[in-house]
Amino acid sequence: MHIIETKNLTKKYGKEVLAVDNLNLEVKEGEIFGLLGPNGAGKTTTLMMLTTLRPPTSGTAKINGFDIIKEPHKVRKSIGIVFQDPSSDEILTGYENLKLHGLLYDMPKELMEKRISEVLKLVDLEKRKNDVVKKYSGGMRRRLELARGLMHRPKILFMDEPTLGLDPQSREHIWKYIEKLAKENKMTIIITTHYMDEADKLCDRLAIIDAGKIVVLNSPKELKKELGGDVIKIKTKKLNANALKKLKYVKKIQKSGGEYCLTVKDASTHLQEILKGTGKIDSVEIHSPTLDDVFLHYTGKAIREDSPEGGWAQKAMNMKTKK
């Protein structure tokens, strides 16, 4: 039995928008599983359905053996979630928000206090724990959100863009902690992320989703290998694509922004021949494939790290002016 199994999970908004389209997915226990996709691909909607917050239009899923539609209460007992949007109460202090969480999840008092100190330390908010959240910056709120989600150690933890907007150092800390949790507690972790380095480093397996469907699913290593070559990025106004297509070691040509991305077998040996065919170019770059290339290959879109869906930072800013 898999810890998460979805069967034709589908969500429609209105009649037109198919946010999640017959999703079939199996996640193994203790695995860190990534959901990657461009904006509006249906990642957050999928998480909302799996965590029982939104009912599917059709299909269903089993979490820890419980049906999300028929046994939502049992599902909720098995899971935890770090939301993409800030969901702590800004009139309460950081500490109070965490305490509230501990109470809601029926944590024994001593364990709760121990975990609160532990997660506050992790996200570096110990000194600010007695300030009301209203006085926190956007990044601090984000960290509090994360701390809260990590507090009660569920069997399955969902994280929607967990390290969005955090500085590299904090992200390192969080990654280590997540990896430790998965290993030591056999916790299953589902993350959605815009950061390819994060997905590459953390995920045992990942699924790239586009338009509500899984485009490809594998381990990061295999995905990169499957591209079948290295990546040559060429910057030029106009590329003679027809000439390049005749070369049999050129697997794929894609345009992204002002750049052309070529997937080429043994790129370093064939570079000269390729450049002969391209005509005049501005610059060229050659590298072994990264997840960014995998993503572009399957979705035809480059991922934009700076524009997450929902506009988290924007929302955090708005919060301050409300009320």
Binding site: T51, L53, I79, I81, F83, S87, S88, E90, L104, K322
Partner: peptide, 9 residues
Amino acid sequence: IDFLKEVLV
């Protein structure tokens, strides 16, 4: 403010 999500989940 999305606090309700935290409670409902």
